[in-house]
């Protein structure tokens, strides 16, 4: 009566791929940028993802955690993440130098419906670390500029020193096919050239929005959603054209561990991108 151990040959969705940190630098004091390449070249090139999806990153000895992909699928090969130091895994990721190895698996979740967004006006509203997932879709829209009508970016941060991708967005501001507005809640430097005030104070700058034909993408700290959504509703943007990406605790990314469950959906399978209608419909989402 001794059970024999079996040899298993099966696809394992929990198996990470070794990946190398190609580049890393600080975006702000507590947010770092990571450029990552899966070490197996074939797998690196065949890693297909949508904007707004996330990946699981693991650091040996510390653990695994979910992170939004900040790079755009229109530039394959390298994956980019911006990561804030908040817990055990991120603390360890922060200490990794260029050339270190990490584990990576994914992509997971339902991203932004970029195909459905084609031909529409796109307004992207990001606050703080909300820029991490939204940079992906922003760069995607700019790389495929002819597919979309107007592209508008509203970017808010607490202070100038806390604005992530500051240089990149200032450079984008020069483009005449992007309407880019930036704001800080408070300017402690006295040298901030742009708007001062919460991100919603940027809305009056956006003129002649064709609400029916607009898709709004929102990501930011929980407090931001309420105010931004109020503005969007005032502008008559349909509830199912307001898209937001949400954070939950996730351990597996594949709908098994249960941690990201809300009502009867799993954020990792059915999200992290939801419409405002989903949010109203599903209680507990924000």
């Amino acid at each position: 009566m001794n059970g024999e151990t079996k040899n298993i040959i099966q696809e394992n969705p929990f198996m990470p791929e070794p990946a190398r940190i190609v580049r890393t630098y600080h975006l702000t004091d507590d947010v770092k940028f990571f450029q990552v390449r899966i070490t197996d070249m074939d797998k690196a090139l065949s890693f297909k993802y949508d904007t707004g999806q996330f990946a699981m990153i693991s650091v040996l000895g510390a653990g695994e955690a979910p992170f939004s992909i900040s790079s755009t699928p229109s530039r394959p090969g390298l994956l980019e993440f911006c990561i804030r130091k908040t817990g055990i895994v991120t603390d360890s990721i922060f200490r990794l130098k260029e050339n270190s190895l990490i584990g990576l698996r994914g992509p997971y979740g339902k991203g932004f419906p970029t195909e459905k967004m084609e031909g529409k006006d796109i307004i992207i509203i990001m606050g703080g670390l909300g820029a991490a997932p939204l940079r992906s879709v922003l760069l995607y829209c700019l790389d495929n500029r002819n597919l979309f009508n107007r592209v508008i970016l509203l970017h808010g941060a607490k202070r100038p020193s806390e604005m992530i991708f500051r240089e990149e967005f200032f450079a984008l501001k020069e483009r005449d096919d992007l309407e880019c507005y930036m704001s800080v809640d408070e300017d402690d430097t006295g040298q901030w050239p742009e708007n001062v005030g919460v991100v919603t104070t940027l809305f009056p700058k956006v003129k002649d929005l064709d609400a029916e034909n607009t898709v709004a993408l929102v990501c930011g700290p929980p407090i931001m959603y309420k105010f931004v959504i109020n503005e969007l509703i005032k502008l008559d943007i349909p509830k199912d054209q307001i898209l937001m990406t949400l954070e939950r605790r996730m351990k597996c990314g594949v709908g098994k561990c249960g941690h990201c469950a809300i009502d009867y959906i799993y954020t990792c399978l059915d999200g992290p991108v939801f419409t405002y209608w989903d949010v109203l419909h599903m209680r507990e989402l924000i």
Binding site: L60, G61, A62, G63, E64, K251, C252, K256, C257, G258
Partner: peptide, 9 residues
């Protein structure tokens, strides 16, 4: 069916 994952070095 919920579970947790831990890294045990």
């Amino acid at each position: 069916n919920c579970y947790n994952i831990n890294d045990k070095p």
